[in-house]
């Protein structure tokens, strides 16, 4: 791991020398039109975002409405009342499509919240470690190594099981490990910029340490932080689904894609649609996030490529 960090210092030293104009955003938009995969990602993600924000506009039926007389009906089923079940019904007779649409909420809330919480911890510790160096750096680096060595899913499962299954605890259990990704990359970035003239200049002109860190160092690490956030958002969504799948996610009856999939395992011999559709949507969502993340990395910070692969 030590070698990786050394490589990053050199790379970011190069990156820091290139001036970045404010027109990057406009360039990025223009570029997006030339990249169909990223454009697909954007469109699909907007749809899922809308599902999460205003699910009642899209959901044909009530996702909580149970009817045991029509359980495990295949896609395309029409009940006596004339309700159409495009993706079939689950083991309690609830509409699969409506539950998938409402399930977008938990996935996106947990994904975004975990990214923000872990980003906050990781950026702070990464800046502190990189800027102050010495003992502080050594301590933070050992904490990072330790967090890396503990099996992630086992730790997250234990935390949720011990603290109780709830939205907050799921977010914490995921963020408690993922901050290290930010911390490692940002530590490297800070190491490479902290001796740059305008920062030594700011120090010499009497800026307080906090001001130097906040006004001069922080802006330098924002673009790698944004890239990491998008590239890891997808993985966090998968981890949330995995926790729900294992029964330690946001508790039922709240619809979650992972929770639906765990029933899919149970009824896999008789009702393939329960295992198929939620996972398909989950995969397309993560794929969209990743495609957008790749594009964002290439446009914002091409030097990140090696780090994040």
């Amino acid at each position: 791991m030590a070698q990786e960090q050394h490589a990053t210092v050199g790379e970011f030293a190069e990156a820091a020398e290139e001036p970045r104009g404010p027109t990057n955003f406009q360039l990025a938009v223009r570029d997006l039109k030339r990249r169909p995969p990223a454009l697909f990602g954007l469109i699909f993600l907007v749809i899922v975002l809308l599902w999460a924000l205003v699910p009642w506009l899209f959901s044909p039926l009530d996702p909580y409405d149970q009817n045991l007389r029509i359980f495990l009906k295949p896609p395309g089923f029409v009940d006596p009342a004339g309700n159409f079940y495009l993706l079939g019904t689950d083991q309690q007779g609830r509409d699969m499509l409506s539950r998938i649409i409402w399930g977008a909420r938990i996935s996106l809330i947990v994904g975004f919240a975990a990214v923000v919480v872990s980003g906050f911890i990781g950026i702070t510790l990464g800046i502190v470690a990189g800027y102050f160096g010495g003992v502080i750096d050594a301590i933070i680096s050992r904490i990072i190594d330790s967090a890396l060595s503990i099996p992630f899913i086992l730790l997250a499962m234990s935390i949720v099981a011990i603290m109780g299954p709830s939205l907050r605890n799921v977010i914490l259990a995921i963020a408690i490990r993922t901050w290290i990704v930010y911390a490692r990359v940002i530590r490297g970035t800070v190491l490479s910029v902290k001796e740059v003239e305008y920062i030594t200049g700011a120090k010499a002109s009497g800026c307080s340490t906090f001001r130097v860190l906040f006004m001069h160092v922080l802006p330098n690490v924002l673009s790698p932080a944004i890239v990491i956030a998008t590239l890891y958002l997808g993985r966090m969504i998968i981890i949330e689904a995995a926790l729900s799948f294992l029964g330690v996610g946001v508790p039922p009856p709240t619809p979650t894609w992972g929770g639906m999939l765990s029933h899919g395992r149970e009824y896999i011999d008789t009702a393939w649609w329960i295992a198929f559709f939620p996972g398909m949507i989950l995969m397309l969502t993560v794929l969209s996030v990743n495609l957008l993340g790749d594009w964002l990395r290439d446009t914002l910070d091409p030097k990140m490529k090696r780090l994040t692969e």
């Binding site: 998968i238 899919g264 295992a275 996972g279 995969m283 993560v286 794929l287 996030v289 990743n290 495609l291």
Partner: peptide, 18 residues
């Protein structure tokens, strides 16, 4: 490889079983 990195492995497991 893009699909491989985006696919939740437990879902792949379910599809393989199917």
């Amino acid at each position: 490889s893009m699909f491989g990195q985006s696919m939740p492995n437990f879902w792949l497991g379910l599809m393989l079983i199917l």
